[in-house]
Design a protein around this nucleic acid. Structure first.
Lengths: 343, 343
DNA sequence: ATGAAAGCGCTAACAG
DNA sequence: CTGTTAGCGCTTTCAT
């Protein structure tokens, strides 16, 4: 897109061009192209032909400015580097498919300042709604979203205060339930393995819920291991080896996600460790990958696609005032799936 | 975003509001907010304070219309359901980070008509550039892109004619090289395992290149197996079991991607099959996952992040006329990585 | 260094 | 069913 003062600026095709080519007024051309209002079949055809002939592509920028309507939904997520968020996206896409709305993604890399920036950027396009991962934001970001005048759905997490609407699971509870299941099954010397990400609030909350239950049972974590960077599967393998060599009496490993859990599982199987009798293990997320492992890793489904779908539905409903509005605070309750790695 | 005629329409904050609050003309406010043109430090501050005070968020729609500039790059990819495309995205993001440009994603689900639709939708926002996966498009889509007047980079594949620019690998050659390596290592009874996706042109091209080399060597495929849907890892496992039970004399399995290859590898290891001596195996993509498997699967890196980076650089360069333009046709040559699953 | 005027391409609202 | 008018919020251009 060249600036209009550039020497080689080629003016774009406008409604006016279609109007002239078809001998129909701009306004009627506009109506035809948007399928709005009554237009006779004859004019309709003339316009459509002219538009196709010319290769006219409407200018949504101008349309949006004039109509004060932007059919975009901003989706703001921390990362693309694991399957979690793409799956949320798919849930959103599926619901938005067939409506006028289109998702637009922004990535924050788990950085609050970057998130604030992305939110600002998004809002400056005046989208019809916003879906944001997590409940933790800078004050400025919260203020912007609260004042944006569009529906805002915070997703993935419900442990905290939502600005407008939220859909997710309680990670504290997820951690608590996993711990409860583990204790119930008799495991006592428990190690924690996770990513070194203080800003991954959801992983933090799971671990908090998890350790709280241990404490209530008079236990404490036997050991911990954190990593950053690299292939999650490989890291899970390495970390597991490290922690088991260091703490020989561990009988359970709780991983912050399934991918590193899978690495740990592969390591144990190769090392001849009896899973789940010598060592039990559990991850989190319920990724598809789990189905293909030699043993199904115990996990808890984080319901990513469902969260995406529900969030999109909330946006849709709050735009369509005739629809009866769905609840604006949705907690999904995942269940512990023991798989083959707990006894 | 409510329509302006709605009963509960709240007018948005405009430059005018900031102008009035700061006692500075709209024009100067605009200059401050865009860091353009000379503005005295004093006015600058007044404006910035007023804007922050009010919580003003500029309207990019209006800005874009007036300036004929949209700092968006459309990225059109077939799928989010495996790690391949998110990784391309990360390459793109990394390069665009720090520039004015922002990527916007559209997903086509490997459907040509859907792709045409997404391209049309994208172009109607008048983005500064387009990055599209693949070289195969509907005629209408090609025409739109050719006439869009913005840089268009087709990525992932170079086996075909590019509209404007392209960055990718030759999948035909990738298939050929893999076949060559396999034959060189003495494998002869070769089975093919892949996804049932006639519209995944790149997988098709790899298989075509692969079988061409076999034919040139007087060989033909011993067996084939295709799947659709489900967990790739689990499917890889199932397909491998199926093909091996059916064709007991196979000595090599070529998978259309690493994920199903990994499933196959896990199956073989569990089944006590000697890899690579009884059976050799190879996949495609070079996903990180491979590092964490019991044996590293032979593969060929599809250079996703690099492709994303190069594509973004081409867009950037063609927008900045002072920059010397990089080549507009870039073929990256991946190398066969034998890992531990070929002898 | 700052301001005023004009208009980007389209659609809402109203008139016929 | 079709057309006319006005203007969305901003930036360009030109004047001061």
């Amino acid at each position: 897109m060249t600036s209009r003062s550039d020497p080689d600026y080629r003016p774009q095709l406008t409604l006016r061009d279609v109007s002239e080519a078809s001998g129909v007024s701009e306004m009627t051309v506009s109506r035809v192209l948007r399928n709005r209002g009554e237009v006779s079949e004859k004019t309709r055809e003339k316009v459509l032909n002219a538009a196709k002939e010319l290769g006219y592509v409407p200018n949504k920028i101008a349309g949006a400015l004039a109509s004060n309507r932007v059919n975009l939904v901003g989706v703001i997520i921390p990362s693309l580097s694991n399957m979690v968020f793409p799956e949320v996206m798919m849930g959103i896409s599926k619901v938005l498919e067939g409506t006028q709305l289109q998702p637009v993604v922004g990535v924050t890399y788990y950085e609050p300042d970057k998130e604030e920036e992305v939110i600002f950027e998004m809002l400056s396009w005046r989208p019809s709604g916003l879906i944001v991962a997590g409940l933790e934001h800078t004050d400025a970001a919260r203020k912007m979203m609260a004042n944006a005048g569009v529906p805002v759905v915070e997703i993935m997490d419900v442990d905290g205060d939502a600005i407008d609407a939220c859909v997710g699971i309680s990670h504290v509870r997820a951690g608590r339930e996993t711990a409860t299941e583990i204790l119930k099954r008799g495991y006592r010397k428990i190690g924690l393995l996770g990513t070194k990400m203080p800003l991954d609030h959801r992983a933090r909350k799971r671990f908090e819920g998890f350790t709280a239950v241990l404490q209530e049972a008079g236990l404490s974590l036997a050991d911990e291991e954190y990593y950053s960077g690299g292939s999650a599967l490989a890291k899970g393998r390495e970390m597991t080896q490290a922690i088991l060599e260091r703490s020989k009496d561990l009988d359970f490993l709780y991983y912050s996600n399934d991918m590193i859990g899978a690495g740990g599982l592969l390591y144990c199987l190769e090392a001849g460790i009896d899973v789940p009798d010598d060592i039990g293990m559990a991850g989190f997320n319920g990724v598809e990958l789990i189905d293909g492992l030699p043993k199904r890793l115990a996990t808890m489904d984080s319901c990513r696609a469902e969260i995406g779908r529900k969030a999109a539905e909330i946006i849709l409903a709050s735009l369509d005032k005739s629809a009866n509005s769905p609840p604006r605070h949705v907690e999904i309750s995942p269940v512990f799936a023991p798989g083959d790695t707990v006894r």
